[in-house]
Amino acid sequence: KKVIATKVLGTVKWFNVRNGYGFINRNDTKEDVFVHQTAIKKNNPRKYLRSVGDGETVEFDVVEGEKGAEAANVTGPGGVPVQGSKYAADR
Rank of each mutant, 00 (worst) to 15 (best):
G55Q: 10
D28S: 02
K30G: 14
G22P: 00
P77F: 07
N19I: 12
N19S: 15
E66R: 15
R50K: 11
G78H: 14
K42T: 13
L49G: 05
T29F: 03
T38I: 06
N25W: 09
N19L: 15
V80H: 12
S51E: 06
R50Q: 09
N73P: 00
R50M: 08
I24L: 12
D54E: 15
E56L: 04
K1F: 07
E64D: 14
N43L: 09
E56K: 03
V8H: 02
G79M: 06
A69F: 15
F23W: 07
E59N: 04
V3E: 08
E31G: 09
V8A: 05
R91N: 09
I24Q: 00
N43I: 10
V12I: 07
H36I: 02
A69Y: 13
K7Y: 03
I24G: 01
G55R: 10
I24F: 02
R18S: 15
G79P: 04
E66P: 15
G78D: 10
G20A: 07
G53I: 07
K86I: 11
I4M: 08
T6D: 13
F34Y: 10
D61P: 00
V62H: 04
V80N: 15
V3H: 08
T29D: 07
A5Y: 15
E31S: 11
F23Y: 06
E66G: 11
F34W: 11
K67N: 11
D61Y: 03
F15S: 01
G68P: 01
V52Y: 03
G79W: 04
P45V: 11
N43Q: 11
N73M: 07
G78E: 12
G84I: 04
N19D: 09
T29H: 03
E59H: 04
T57V: 15
E66M: 13
D90N: 14
K1I: 10
G65L: 04
K41D: 05
V8Y: 01
I40N: 01
V3N: 14
Y48Q: 09
Q37I: 09
P45F: 10
F34P: 02
K2F: 07
K30S: 13
P77S: 06
F60N: 01
F23G: 01
G76H: 05
V63D: 02
V12R: 00
G78I: 05
G78F: 10
G10A: 01
S51V: 05
Q37M: 13
R50G: 06
V35A: 04
